[in-house]
Design a protein around this nucleic acid. Structure first.
Length: 814
DNA sequence: GGGAATGAAAA
DNA sequence: TTTTCATTCCC
């Protein structure tokens, strides 16, 4: 939640989870210090959250009552991504180098808590919300990878049922295959632990502590920096501040949360360095930090924005006098130094710096007051309530904003709000219902953005305005204009074009129309929007992206749903969803849609993240058919107790349709040679683990199990039978069945790229890729044209680059 | 917000 | 041995 001049914005992020409270003034100050880079980051952060998150701005009242209009925010905890580990490392390194510079900031910013947290490391028990999420275990990885398949196969099945099936599959899975998942899980875990040294799975019982300020949700920094010099710094100031302003908890975007953004940036950097460095340097005529190096346009933009903020931002006074002011004065507004730093190393450096700066801010900024975190549940509830309220109030706000010449911050806030809400678009004036724009997507979309209801609209138009204005203004303004022009305009167009293709025509059309209108309006209102325009453009793009993403998800869902209702699985089978990769650790942070084999760009990205993504993707994905058959034949016996019903369903349906599908898709999928012919081989001997026992206990109660002949028979005691069953399985060479259908769907990237079934392409593939690509482009802000062409032109069906970039960017999806 | 699964880690 | 929590998302 952001608090700005009494207005609170509630940002909920699916992937990011955290609800954080930001005091905007503080934030601004921080930005100034940092030199604006953070601004961009912040934006990005918001953006990423946006897709699933909805934010609403509303008046302070916490007391919202909730109505659970929408779905609850899915996660509260930050998700951990392997990439974070790396980032952490980088950060630490840099930090040491830069210590001097940062020391000051740290002192200023550091809060005692922050220190404590550092010591504690990521796991702050206090703020349960902020805790990094546990890395997924092997089974979860398996579930994640196969759930979609299960769901496709059994559209009517709810998640529970799907989970059961997955469990069945898992139980049947060949140990070797399992091992793959186990290994990856371990790898994730290791990386996670590395990143979060002190992490404890079970938060200490601290929870009971209720924070003094119940309502405020404080965000703690989740991640720990391995080497934190800063700890030593006194933070008294901060503390005082916090005390003074209990409400104002300032939390900057942290790397963890920013995952998406960071990715974005990284992608941008990469792209830039790879292709455009020369051009950029030429363009960036500005003496400032940006030039020399091939900073990404995004950064430049950020800086520019920050500068303006500095000048203009002064207008907005921090409501409460905080130490920040002093700091602000102390620190040069836009610190060239930072810029230079960033500039020096194009890729990694920028990244690191950004992270670093962010991290600093976060650490320091995080206020302790609210430490006592509420239990997640409570928080969630709160969030919901708040969000709902926010929505309600949204209208008011919008009205306000437009009227007065808002400060940049306001505009920013609006934008954020809009983004958070997911209002991309439809612009209708606040009063009018949004429907038209969203209509197409809406059916499904509701699921994703339940909260966002009517009020959303506002933001979007505004953003659009900004973008348009920006462009125009840029033209006027000499400074950044060149750069921006290049970057922004293309971005815009790009977005739209992409959008059009992907999105429903209606929505697009409306959007465009709105844009035009908005642009007009904007011009009229005019004035200082240039900076905003920059932001706006960025936001807009982001928003668009988010929209695309959400739409895509919705579409998929819709298809599924439709599939459920009537048609069988054709649609669903083996769609992109199946292919989609979500970072294991991150949960939602990114989805890797088909990775293209080897893209240059991809290579650039090739960080841990990619590696992990690849690994995850490379995990064998087994055809449901295989399982089904197996289950029907072999497994049945085994399964004994377990959900007989589910199995039955499974077995019944699956085989026929699935086969067709599977075969169709077989093309794209490669049969992993390495993989044993039948992944499903019975698990020979696993000792029962706790969970198994637990399961056994439950199941013990009795379930119907299928016999080999397909009859249902009462299951015996699970524990006892379990072994025998498995043994049988094993021995019974399922292989015949399995082998036939038992194609192991492990999709190698190359394969995916090369062979994509026509269905896939037509149905789902396109939209997803484009959106991702578009976003990437935007992020880079570099040559929109470059990315586009590459993507669009790329023939294989899906632009490889796009895919990769998409992965990075589309954290929010779903 | 519960639930459905498995599993790792902690209590 | 039992809890927590990681994933997903319908109910």
């Amino acid at each position: 939640m952001c608090t700005y001049n009494g207005t609170k914005l509630n940002l909920k992020g699916e992937w990011s989870t955290c609800d954080f409270t930001i005091h905007f003034d503080v934030f601004r100050q921080e930005l100034l210090k940092i030199g604006g880079v953070h601004d961009a980051i912040f934006i990005g952060c918001v953006q990423f959250k946006h897709s699933t998150m909805k934010a609403s701005s509303r008046n302070k009242d916490h007391s919202a009552d909730g109505d659970g209009t929408g779905k609850r925010p899915k996660r509260k905890c930050l998700q951990w991504h392997p990439l974070l580990a790396k980032k952490m490392l980088d950060f630490s390194e840099e930090e040491e180098e830069d210590e001097e510079d940062e020391d000051i900031d740290k002192d200023a910013l550091m809060s005692t808590e922050g220190l404590e947290h550092e010591a504690d490391e990521t796991e702050d028990d206090d703020s349960s919300e902020q805790r990094a999420r546990r890395p997924m275990n092997a089974f979860l990885l398996f579930c994640k990878r196969h759930r979609s398949l299960v769901r496709q196969q059994h559209p009517r099945l709810d998640n529970r049922g799907a989970t059961k099936i997955l469990a069945d599959w898992w139980s049947v899975l060949d140990p070797k295959e399992k091992q793959k998942y186990t290994d990856l899980a371990k790898e994730y875990k290791d990386a996670f632990l590395k990143a979060n040294p002190g992490y404890k799975w079970c938060p200490t019982t601290n929870k009971p502590l209720k924070s003094p300020s119940p309502t405020v949700t404080t965000r703690k920094k989740l991640w720990t920096f391995p080497t934190e010099p800063a700890k030593e710094f006194p933070i008294t100031k901060r503390v005082v501040k916090a005390e003074e302003m209990p409400q104002i908890n300032f939390a900057m975007a942290d790397p963890t949360q920013m995952g998406g953004l960071s990715m974005l940036l990284l992608a941008g950097e990469h792209a830039l360095t790879a292709k455009e460095i020369s051009s950029n340097t030429a363009q960036s005529g500005t003496p400032d930090s940006t030039k020399q190096c091939g900073n990404s346009a995004l950064f430049q933009l950020a800086e520019m924005c920050s500068d303006r903020l500095v000048t203009e931002g002064v207008q907005n006074e921090p409501p409460t006098g905080t130490s920040e002011d002093g700091h602000a004065s102390e620190v040069p507004v836009a610190d060239p130094g930072l810029g230079t730093k960033n500039d020096d190393d194009v890729k990694p450096q920028d990244w690191n710096t950004n992270d670093k700066s962010l991290s600093l801010l976060t650490d320091t900024s995080v206020t302790s007051l609210n430490k006592s975190e509420k239990i997640k549940k409570k928080k969630k509830k709160k969030v919901k309530l708040e969000s709902t309220k926010a929505e309600k109030h949204t209208v008011k706000k919008s009205g306000k904003k437009r009227k007065s010449s808002e400060s940049d911050m306001e505009s920013l806030m609006y934008t954020i709000d809009a983004v958070a809400k997911g209002d991309w678009g439809t612009e209708k004036p606040s009063g009018s219902p949004v429907k038209s724009g969203r209509c197409s997507a809406k059916s499904t979309e509701n699921l994703l953005h339940p909260v966002s209801s009517p009020p959303k609209k506002k933001m979007k138009p505004k953003q659009i305005k900004l973008s348009t204005e920006k462009i125009s203004e840029l033209n006027k303004h000499s400074k950044v204009s060149d750069l921006e022009k290049v970057t922004t305009s293309p971005v815009k167009t790009e977005t739209f074009s992409v959008t059009e293709q992907l999105l429903s025509h209606n929505a697009l059309g409306e959007v465009k129309a709105e844009n035009k209108e908005i642009s007009k309006k904007t011009e009229a209102s005019g004035s200082r929007k240039s900076e905003r325009s920059c932001k706006g453009a960025l936001y807009k793009t982001l928003v668009s992206e988010g929209m695309l993403t959400s739409l895509r998800a919705n579409v998929d869902r819709g298809k599924k749903a439709s599939g459920k209702g009537g048609s069988s699985d054709h649609e669903g089978c083996w769609k992109e969803e199946e292919w989609s990769f979500s970072n294991v650790g991150t949960s939602g942070t990114k989805k890797l849609k088909k990775l293209k084999p080897k893209d240059e760009s991809a290579l650039g990205l090739g960080n841990l993240e990619q590696e992990f993504a690849k690994k995850f993707n490379s995990l064998p994905q087994y055809s449901p058919v295989t399982f089904d058959r197996k289950n029907t034949t072999v497994t049945r016996k085994k399964k004994k107790n377990r959900s007989g019903s589910t199995e039955q369903q499974k077995s019944d349906k699956a085989i026929v349709p699935q086969d067709t599908n599977s075969e169709e898709h077989t093309e794209k999928v490669d049969h992993a040679p390495s993989v044993p012919s039948s992944p499903l081989t019975a698990v020979s001997q696993e000792p029962l683990i706790g969970s198994q026992k637990r399961k056994a206990r439950k199941t013990k109660i009795t379930h119907l199990i299928r016999t080999a002949d397909g009859r249902l028979s009462p299951a015996g005691d699970l524990t006892k039978e379990k072994w025998p069953c498995k043994q049988e399985k094993k021995k019974q060479p399922l292989k015949t069945d399995t082998l036939v259908s038992g194609v192991n769907y492990s999709r190698s990237e190359t394969e995916q790229a090369c062979s994509i079934s026509p269905e896939v392409q037509t149905t789902s593939a396109i939209p997803a890729f484009f959106s991702l690509a578009a976003l990437a482009e935007v992020a880079a802000m570099e040559n929109a044209h470059r990315g586009q062409r590459a993507v669009s032109l790329n023939r294989d069906g899906q632009p490889k680059e796009m895919a990769q970039t998409s992965v990075l960017i589309s954290c929010a999806d779903q």
